[in-house]
Design a protein around this nucleic acid. Structure first.
Length: 486
RNA sequence: GGCGGCUUAGCCAAGCGGUAAGGCGACGGUCUGCAAAACCGUUAUACGGCGGUUCAAAUCCGCCAGCCGCCUCCA
């Protein structure tokens, strides 16, 4: 069938045909480093991480570029607020970015260019645009003339006239058209600047992506991505800049991810409901957050709530625990030649789902169907070697589940035994009771149960429950876990 | 005002013309001293409403209602 991608430019799913067979060039707009990353950033970064992983799994040699915007109004303003040097502030939040993304298991792109390290390329591009008549200088600023580019609006489906009449654009006497945007901004006193043919100043926001994408990927490349909000004006302006400078086409496929809402509300600073990645990660396993982010289609809005994260956590545990069951079945050395559909051809069905515009929810459903099948085999035939499928069949299934989950989705990377153990005891230190005290009480309760003193046994269970500890009796004695953990 | 999108069980969520995936929850069962956990099973004659096209529509078209996003920095 082949890979099909919903392309914002054509507004339909297009068959993916790379410019150069076997190779893919992908540019994704990264973050402006002036604050900690929130769950919305996580969604975008994880999505493109999964796309990157999948393209590699398909055998493509992928050049993946994700930039850092490290000089901009927001950075300068924030630095002034906190009394920091803008460059130090930006560098610090780059470190914080990596802290969060590494925790989420996000792979490093091929190149991660910073705007401040490409001032030369940016200036050359602006000079080129002025020479070709697409840009003009006014008092040390350089503006892009949207009317000079006939394709302006083709990505976002907007017309210049409609936008102008919308009256939401700020009227600036320097601009020939209210929609013209800055390629180069003259420095105001106290602002960072670089010398340029137009005087001291700094790059506008949109131009860095045009300059850096051409440097690392060439004038034409395959995939350009980012959050849905970047479609206009950022990506529209990038197209205008890059196509005007090159005199030809820019990126072929435009991918935009939907937003994360918090309890059905838009996440925004003014509502005070911005959720940082690291705060969420204090309450759940990183793979839980990844699973949550991949549980709905990337173009749909995704609603975050404590409950939905908890659901993702339960779902992740279900997968890990199925692997544990599978391992027991493999050890059982089954003799049946049965090959249940749910655990066969996982790889081809998974790839088929991914090829359909990166349908990760369908991928997860395939994994859960396999998990249910494994559990059913265990409960129905667990004691009957004649009925358990052969170790070879089950081992292939295990390999598929682990490889697809780990390599493409970036989950199930832990040893199942270790994961289950960790999930049970995570957060113990905050309970006000030590592990040895817990173990002491549990062995006392075990003794009481042995003596059929169930009153005492239940007292101990209630006492531990008061500390948030849940007792689980098993064939090999009681184990415990921390309650209400994601 | 302009442009775009969404509406599927209690909740989340696939589905892209052939007769409703999956997850969570709930309920029933197995297990247990009783529980918990785990597992199994059950859980939408039905896809916002009304028309139309078709042998066949959640899926295509039209109208209506509701929700949302972008048009301003934003993933």
């Amino acid at each position: 069938m082949g890979l099909r991608i919903y392309n914002t430019l054509t507004r339909k799913k297009d068959v993916f045909e790379p410019l150069n067979p076997g190779r893919v060039g992908m540019y994704v707009c990264g973050v402006t480093v002036y604050d900690l990353c929130h769950i919305g950033h996580a969604r975008s970064v994880v999505l493109f991480d999964v796309i990157y992983r999948f393209l590699m799994k398909c055998g493509f040699a992928v050049t993946y570029v994700r930039n850092f915007t490290d000089v901009d109004d927001k950075i300068i303003n924030r630095a002034n607020q906190v009394g920091d040097y803008w460059k130090d502030l930006a560098e610090r939040f780059i470190v914080e970015f990596y802290t969060d993304m590494d925790a989420l298991g996000v792979l490093r792109p091929t190149h991660e260019p910073k705007a401040t390290e490409h001032i030369g390329e940016i200036q050359a591009l602006i000079t080129n645009l002025i020479h070709k008549g697409f840009a003009y200088e006014v008092d040390g600023d350089v503006m892009y003339s949207v009317e000079s580019f006939s394709g302006y609006g083709k990505l976002s489906g907007k017309k210049i006239e409609d936008l102008v009449s919308g009256a939401r654009v700020e009227i600036d006497q320097k601009k020939r058209n209210p929609l013209d945007f800055a390629l180069w901004k003259a420095a105001k006193p106290g602002e960072p600047y670089w010398d340029s043919p137009w005087g001291p100043g700094r790059p506008g926001w949109h131009i860095e992506c045009s300059a850096m994408s051409v440097k690392y990927l060439g004038e034409r490349f395959d995939i350009h991505g980012g959050g849905a909000d970047l479609t206009f004006p950022h990506h529209e302006n990038e197209i205008a800049q890059s196509e005007a400078a090159a005199g030809g086409a820019f990126a072929t496929y435009w991918i935009h991810n939907g937003f994360v809402n918090i309890r059905s509300e838009k996440m925004s600073k003014s509502l005070g409901n911005v959720l940082n990645i690291r705060d969420i990660l204090k309450t759940c396993h990183p793979e839980t957050l990844r699973l949550f982010l991949l549980s709905s289609h990337y173009r749909s809005p995704l609603d975050y709530s404590d409950e939905s994260l908890k659901e993702a956590s339960s779902a992740l545990e279900r997968l890990y625990s199925a692997i544990l069951v599978l391992d027991r079945l493999i050890d059982a050395k089954g003799l049946s030649s049965d090959r249940p559909e749910e655990i066969m051809n996982l790889s081809s069905r998974f790839v088929e789902a991914m090829e359909d515009d990166f349908n990760t929810p369908r991928c997860l459903a395939i994994l859960f169907e396999a998990a249910r099948c494994i559990n059913r085999i265990n409960t129905e035939y667990g004691a009957n070697v004649e009925k358990i499928p052969s170790s070879e069949t089950l081992l292939n299934c295990r390999t598929d589940i682990i490889n697809l989950s780990r390599d493409v989705l970036g989950i199930l990377k832990e040893e199942p035994v270790a994961f289950v153990e960790r999930a049970r005891h995570a957060g113990t230190t905050e309970l006000g009771i030590t592990v040895s005290e817990i173990d002491g009480l549990i062995s006392e309760r075990g003794q009481a149960r042995k003596n059929r003193d169930f009153k005492r046994a239940d007292e101990i269970r209630d006492k531990l429950a008061g500390f948030g500890i849940l007792i689980e009796d098993g064939p090999k004695g009681a184990t415990w876990r921390v309650k209400d953990r994601n």
